[in-house]
Nucleic acid binder design. Structure first.
Lengths: 333, 333
DNA sequence: AAAAGTGAAGTAAACGATTAAAATATTGTT
DNA sequence: AACAATATTTTAATCGTTTACTTCACTTTT
């Protein structure tokens, strides 16, 4: 049993309230001699504040929770770094909980873990909540914001403009002279995938290119999806360029292409979407449409703050700019 | 303001205690008609249990906290998966907090975040706590265990046998006929690095090889460390094999070697330590001494359970077996 | 029909902190 | 020395749950 404020009060011979004031630095309300004694006693007893009790009575907390899906890609770390940095700046603590993939039960569990305790805000990283879970989240009255995922409805989010991302990546290849361009690893679900596909098609349309059905290979953003897609395209594909829907997909593509005897970028150009560290540690280095994940994280905690202050912003949908980073995986034709 | 147990009690017309009993399934203590009504009301009011209050009165909690250092390597995810799976099995929730690198202030902050609330156990992933912070942890009376890090003192940990890991990796190269073997990316701190170095030297000794000073390049487990090490060895190195102290270091080595005009494994063999997914997505695929991170995570939560039950095990130091995975980065001589 | 037993619900005291409001001590003013 | 003003401390209520104990209303037993 850890020491409480009462133990300190007893030891020093003052009332618990005095101890409380000293320990939470309500200056002006105690004299420095008492303060000394209290602090010393706290030290000696190895006192740790019981935040559960604090949060119960104050009905507020300084922790921000991030719920992250264990998708097969690897940018969550960068977002979390962004959250962490900004949270620190504002004096918030950060806790992270993992919601396994799309399984709604695991999602619910993760969600309840954070909703059932007094957190000041919830950030959801690339998670599309099911109906029920979304309801749960709304009912909780806790400020929240989705990160790295865009929605049709009124949910607040901060994300890249996925339609534009798809467009940019495709356009990049077109500008380099490519006309037969694949799209690999796209998921079949409503959001990110659909938008990137839309951008891809727009770029193709503008250039007067009609895409063939087998240019588009679905997947789940994983390395394996990339390999599988390349297998489908095959050794003798007439594609000269491929847009990969994530860095891991791009790497899968790259390796499988090499296995098949195709050289990147000589025989085949690849643009990746995401632009994480992976792009630079692979050879050839991957040209990418890079998202600013770090910034998403930072904006996320600012958003939580804003929602807390002015309810207004509870539906704001915000895009973080992306940029093209040319490296070595595209060749002009 | 979210609905409380009292609101439900009022709505149904029973005492709060009854509601509590129903909602926490203390069967036998209520009849099913009341139960129905209570549950319905809870549903309607969108009731969420306030865990802060629960934990306050029960003085126990079902959350396990993982504190992870943001080191430059990438196995934390696998450990967390292991923790998550095992935690789920036991009905525990998992929260993760990040302690930036070795900076003692950030460590302290992370530690307090979890110590100050009622968590049932703390798992520390590849973190070496400073004196003060270790004291903090001990005083908290919360069961804890270090993961993926071994110590000289009596701290409980679960880790790979790092001396053996260093030995195995080096021996593997020796068995393939190598005699000039480097060690790259090793850190200068007391634990992991020192042990692997010891194993490296033992293998060399046994084979009657005397290592030269510049065979050993220090670093911090990062990709950059690998590049830097390879730069030091240089294009004309007489080494034929290198032990990389992490997968990221191995990849740095690999890429820089290629830049320098050295082919792996034809001109230079590399063994990596860790064996994460990275080994397979890089070309050539990296032969590795692989750690079983997933298992470490699982054992970690079992350990927390054990400590809670029998205080005895609070100092147990346990090794998880490693294994060699031969892939493509070593050539026999 | 009285006594004993059982099932269901209510009462009230915790848990560890915070914080208005009340009480007391200290200092300054005249 | 009496009073006001200010500084410091104590008292007591409160946050939302749980739970040991008590109470009440029926059944069963004899």
């Amino acid at each position: 049993m850890s020491a409480t404020i009462k133990d300190i009060a007893n030891k020093v011979g003052v009332a618990p309230s005095t101890v409380s004031r000293v320990l939470s630095n309500k200056t002006k309300y105690y004299n420095s001699l008492t303060a000394e004694k209290v602090k010393k006693a706290a030290e000696e007893l190895g006192y740790k504040k019981n935040q559960a009790a604090v949060e119960l009575v104050k009905r507020e907390s300084n922790v921000i929770a991030a719920v992250v899906s264990s998708v097969k890609t690897n940018f969550a770390g960068e977002i979390i770094d962004g959250i962490q940095e900004e949270a620190l700046k504002h004096g918030y603590d950060l806790i992270v909980v993992y919601a396994g993939s799309a399984d709604s039960d695991e999602q619910k569990r993760a969600l309840l873990t954070v909703i059932e305790r007094p957190v000041m805000g919830i950030l959801l990283l690339s998670i599309a909540l099911g109906e029920d879970n979304l309801k749960l989240l709304k009912e909780s009255q806790i400020p929240y914001c989705f990160l790295s995922m865009a929605f049709d409805d009124k949910r607040p989010f901060i994300s890249s403009d996925d339609e534009e991302v798809g467009y940019k990546a495709t356009k990049l290849l077109i500008d380099k002279g490519h006309r037969k361009i694949g799209l690999a690893g796209i998921d079949k679900y409503p959001y990110t995938g659909r938008l990137r596909l839309k951008g891809y098609k727009r770029a193709l349309d503008e250039a007067g290119i009609v895409s063939k059905e087998d240019w588009i290979q679905t997947g789940d953003y994983s390395y394996l999806s990339g390999e599988k897609a390349m297998d489908q395209y095959g050794k003798d594909t007439d594609l000269t360029g491929i847009v990969a829907v994530s860095d891991m997909v791009a790497i899968g593509l790259l390796n499988k292409a090499r296995n098949l005897g195709l050289n990147v970028p000589e025989d085949l150009s690849i643009v990746s979407i995401d632009g994480t560290e992976m792009c630079r540690i692979v050879q050839p280095q991957l040209t990418s449409v890079s998202q600013n994940f770090f910034e998403m994280g930072k904006s996320g905690v600012q958003r939580i703050e804003d929602i807390k202050k002015h309810k207004k912003l509870a539906h704001l949908q915000q895009m973080i700019p992306t940029r093209i980073e040319e490296r070595q995986s595209i060749k002009g034709i």
